[in-house]
Amino acid sequence: MLIVTKKDVEQADLPLMSDEALLSNSLEGNLVAFDLLVDRYYDRLYGYLMRFLKDSDTAEDLLQETFLRVWRKRAEFKNIASFSTWIYTIAGNLARSEWRRRKRWRMLRLGPSRSENEADVELPDGRSGPDRIVEGRMAVEELAKELQELPERYREVVILRDIQEMTYEEIAGIVQVPVGTVKSRLNRGRLILQDKLGKWHEST
């Protein structure tokens, strides 16, 4: 890893630095260094939050909160994990607690719904027949919608692996479970999705 002391570094060198070096530059209040971290991560994290929550306003709020937390805790970052893992963990924790907050709301209003119950999730619900899919765009929307229905512990792994194409090890670091658990959750999540969407996948 690149080790850079803060003082002998020109601002011009900042774009070439590792995330970790940028973070250590921001320790003494270098906002330009921190801006570069924002530039490197905001799109990816936004995609993650959007796929997790499917609500752009909330995704934006949580994205901002993620970076504010990183700023506040920047002195606490120890190179035990990569910066990438660290910031994804922060975003993931925010997304999960937001999701649980919503779930409580739904439970209070409607009582437990079918999709809340994991045992029922695996049953195809008959809503996703091929006739519902008019074109590719709609198929993608349908898939995004079904992804929302996936229990969160499968959803986060599917998003990180199949959408954001991270390694199992990276995901294990972010979700804070063993690699074996990541793999089994991924497989389970894919099967649940496939069994719900199976009908139109056959036709494509």
Partner: peptide
């Protein structure tokens, strides 16, 4: 097929305004 389709869900763009508002908040 699902794994192939899931890749199509990547690439949601936040837009530069979001980056700016984050930088302002920081």
């Amino acid at each position: 097929a699902l794994v192939t389709d899931l890749k199509k869900l990547d690439g949601i763009e936040a837009g530069p305004e979001i980056a700016w508002s984050i930088k302002r908040a920081v």
